[in-house]
Design a protein around this nucleic acid. Sequence first.
DNA 1: ATCTCATTTATAATGGTTACAGATAACAAA
DNA 2: TTTGTTATCTGTAACCATTATAAATGAGAT
Lengths: 163, 163
Amino acid sequence: MRDSEQLMARVRAQGGKATPQRVAVWRALEHDQTHPTAEDLYARLKVTMPTLSLTTVYHVLNELVEWGELRRFDIGDGHIHFDPDTAPHAELICLRCHRVMDAPAGVGMPAETLPNELAGYRIITRTEQYFGYCPDCRQAMRIGSQGRPRSALHGRSTGDAGD
Amino acid sequence: MRDSEQLMARVRAQGGKATPQRVAVWRALEHDQTHPTAEDLYARLKVTMPTLSLTTVYHVLNELVEWGELRRFDIGDGHIHFDPDTAPHAELICLRCHRVMDAPAGVGMPAETLPNELAGYRIITRTEQYFGYCPDCRQAMRIGSQGRPRSALHGRSTGDAGD
DNA sequence: ATCTCATTTATAATGGTTACAGATAACAAA
DNA sequence: TTTGTTATCTGTAACCATTATAAATGAGAT
């Protein structure tokens, strides 16, 4: 995601307005590597901007996504998560507890390989997601299959995938 | 995703049952490259299995995902889409109309580079998603910014990303 | 044929996200 | 600085995809 200076220029060039709400959301996203949800950001921002509405947060996030400045993704926990890091990079996602973390440096394709165009699409960014089982879930699956370390929306089937 | 033979074996080995509903969903997914939603599959299956319930479809899909046999992903249209192709491959997703298509062969990292383990995670599969603007949307954005070719949930901001 | 328990079904509930319309304020122009 | 235009924001209501629940079913074992 570009910094607020550049986004401000972009919005104005388009006939839009650089409102405090927009800028606040932009700033909150800068350097955020926690893959927050809309609610997460709303909760954070509400402290210093009590009049902010959740609707606005959604609106600003959606327009950033459409601009290709922000990436939204589903990790299976029932919430949409956002990531301002549009530099091509990889993520690790646990199939069982839905934990996400950025992959260690060096994993995934180098950024320079991002093509400008593919099958007629103008390419803006790329992401790589690696799915598997995190250390905790591997352990839990070995022992039995009772508990789920973190927010698994609601328990379901009895995972087993060998190890 | 493995074929129904193998899945049947897997389910039985785990003390589960190979019910007609499960097998029907499995079969429906085989060779499906349309990135269907749960509703899509339900509609298709209901024709030949009128008693099937949507809840079951969701249930079967979720367990496949947790087993690492199926991948779920968000393309921004408000529906979760599924893809049985767990062989590492890439997808193109339009930021404006949310159209998805598999990337041309050769795009993305070769399957052989899938690591067994990363940062303690047992890796099962990987996906690469390329985000940009499809040919239709590029054209529409050039002309003006009125219509949206396909299912854009509900219109929102006025996309513009240069071309 | 019978038993058991995983699975299915139908329905209700949940809750994340978006629609809507009126109020607000950013920016341009005078 | 004042005014006007209109993009944006707010609060509320609505939507609808997905999941919870509990009773009914039937797959597979004995």
